[in-house]
Structure formats: structure tokens, C-alpha cells
Write a protein that binds this DNA or RNA. Structure first.
Lengths: 162, 162
DNA sequence: GGGTTTGTTTCGCCGTGGTGAACCGACGCT
DNA sequence: AGCGTCGGTTCACCACGGCGAAACAAACCC
């Protein structure tokens, strides 16, 4: 994953979503600004003006850390979806859907299969699955995960791009 | 744990054992030296000459990372809840509830289990647990701890998100 | 006596699951 | 190219139940 450079504190709006999606980032701290104090190993900062080799070194370190921690999401015994030090709770239906997607992380899972998993004795209505996928998408977004649609095939779970 | 300052590359002999023992360290990189490239989150570096506040900020971050990994709240013999150099006193009921949560720090503890722990011979009312959780939340907030609800499953103790 | 601890009631928010409907883009057919 | 269908997204709405929070009152302890 690529490291994003952010001016700080000018662009701290942008920073929130980068932190949320687990994107590695290097804050360029202006000459008069106070340094940030994040503990996140995927965040670093450097005081401007800075030498080119120093910036490159810090970017390289962040890249290495990001690729090292190639994590796979997991549903623990308590029904929580955990990913990269963060977690969200899932409702029972969402847990089944997420479970099917996590077991085949990065691969397509058919709609039919997911519907049977969530409702073994038949889905309530046609778009019940659609609505739950929508809700699952919004719930897992803070983890930096996204559900992508493969038309007429099914759904696929992966790390968010942006 | 204290952060050790190391001149680099002059003192790189010393560095090996620091890395081995997991001691957090800040490398002071001379004006002409190339920056190091360690991936370890407990190692950082700064280019000399450097401002005082920048050095202090990096030391603080390393300290926070070092204590983050190890810090688990604990209830001592006097019934005090201790966490990272701070403590609060707990009432008897709160002690039992906090005890159950501390023993499974970071994981979900069922409401039923906590109720039996606080009132072995039967809980007074259903809401009694809710109210005590509310009071426990306010009591431990100054420690940087928080109790998260996992709906219809139980409660979870974790460090408060910054 | 005054503060703390505990239990109880009441009110209300919000998470959850389900449904119908509007909307929209991709695809296929003529 | 024009058009209809299909698959999928999103929204608004409802019903139910779990849980949060305030306020009150009684018991307890220094």
C-alpha cells in the first residue's frame, strides 16, 4: 500500500479517514507547527524543511510496516469482526454474512450461498440480502474493509482501496 | 519503560542489545549520516540538529508505544484498579464487575456472567447491572479505560480510543 | 452528620430485522 | 441505436427489544 503525504495541521480533515482505513501516512509538519502525537506505527511525521533522503527513508519504513502487517479479518468467539487492532460488533445476520465473506477473503461468494447461510430455511424477501449487505458495508467501513459486487456472481470482501 | 537516546552511527554497537531486549530507542542521526531503516515501531530517529520539542515528541511516542503493549489494568489487594501509573478506588460491587472485565481484558464478558459474579445468590433487578456499569464507566474514565457494549452479548473493557 | 454505596423506577434512545418502493446502470434483444 | 429487463443499491418506514441515563430513596460507613 502506498504512503500518503499530508500537510499538517492544514490537512487534518483528510487525516481522519486515512487513519480509519489504515492507510500509512507521513505528516509534513510546517516550521511553526507543533508535532503530532499519534501512537500508530503506520503514522510518522517529519519537520519541514526536510532533506529528500530523510523523507524517502520515512516513507520506506512506513511502506515496509504496512506490507508486513498484511492482516486478514477475523470473526472472534464473541462475534466481533476484528481487523488491524480495530473491531466492530455485528448483529446475528451480519455475522453470518461476514463469516461467509471472511472465510473466502478476497474471493467471490455467491448470493445464493450467503442467503442460505443467513436464512437456512429460506430468505424472507428478495432484497433482504441486499439491505443487509448495505448495512454490513457501512458497519465495516471504519475498519478499512469493503464489500464489492461482482455482478450476477456475488460479493467479495477486500481491504478498502482509497 | 524509558527511551534510550543513541548517537548514530557512532554507537551502533550498543544498538544491538537494545533491539534485542525490546528497549525503545531514539537514534540521533548526525548531519552527514544516512538515516537508518529499521521497521521496529519501538525505534525512531531524528536528524541533528533538532528542535527540543521534536525530540521530546518522538520520545513521548516511543514511550506510549512501549507501555501500550504491556499495559493491562490490574486490581490490587486493596481493591484499587491500577492502570499506567494511575488508580481509582472501587466499591465492592464495582470491584467484582471490574474484576470480571479485567480478567478478560479486550474480550467480551456476558451480562449473565457478570451478574452472577456481583450477586452470586441472584441479582436484585435486571437494571441493577446496567446502573452499575454506568457508574463503573464514569469511575474508570480518568484512567483512559472504557467499557464498550456489545449488544445482546455483554461488555468489553479496553483502552479508550484517543 | 455527611458522603458513599446500593437498589429501584421511569423514560426514551437506538440497534435490529423486515418490507416496499424508487432509482440506476449493465446487458441483451430487435 | 433504441428499449425493456434484470440485478443491485438505497431510502423511508415500522415494530420490538436491549440498553442508557437520570432521579429518587434507603442503607451503610467513617
Amino acid at each position: 500500500m502506498d504512503v500518503v503525504l499530508v500537510r499538517w495541521p492544514e490537512e487534518n480533515l483528510h487525516l481522519g479517514e486515512l487513519r480509519g482505513s489504515g492507510t500509512p501516512r507521513l505528516l509534513l509538519v510546517g516550521p511553526d507547527a507543533a508535532p503530532p502525537d499519534s501512537v500508530d506505527p503506520l503514522e510518522d511525521w517529519i519537520r519541514l524543511p526536510a532533506e529528500d533522503r530523510d523523507v524517502r527513508a520515512r516513507v520506506a519504513t512506513l511502506e515496509a510496516r504496512a506490507s508486513n502487517g498484511l492482516a486478514v479479518p477475523e470473526i472472534d468467539d464473541d462475534g466481533l469482526l476484528r481487523f488491524r487492532d480495530r473491531w466492530v460488533s455485528l448483529s446475528p445476520v451480519e455475522r453470518e454474512l461476514a463469516g461467509a465473506l471472511v472465510e473466502r477473503f478476497g474471493a467471490v461468494v455467491g448470493r445464493e450461498l450467503m442467503a442460505r447461510r443467513a436464512w437456512p430455511s429460506g430468505a424472507p424477501t428478495r432484497n433482504a440480502l441486499d439491505v443487509h449487505i448495505l448495512r454490513l458495508r457501512r458497519r465495516i467501513a471504519p475498519l478499512g474493509l469493503e464489500v464489492r459486487t461482482v455482478r450476477s456472481r456475488g460479493y467479495l470482501l477486500q481491504t478498502a482501496l482509497s
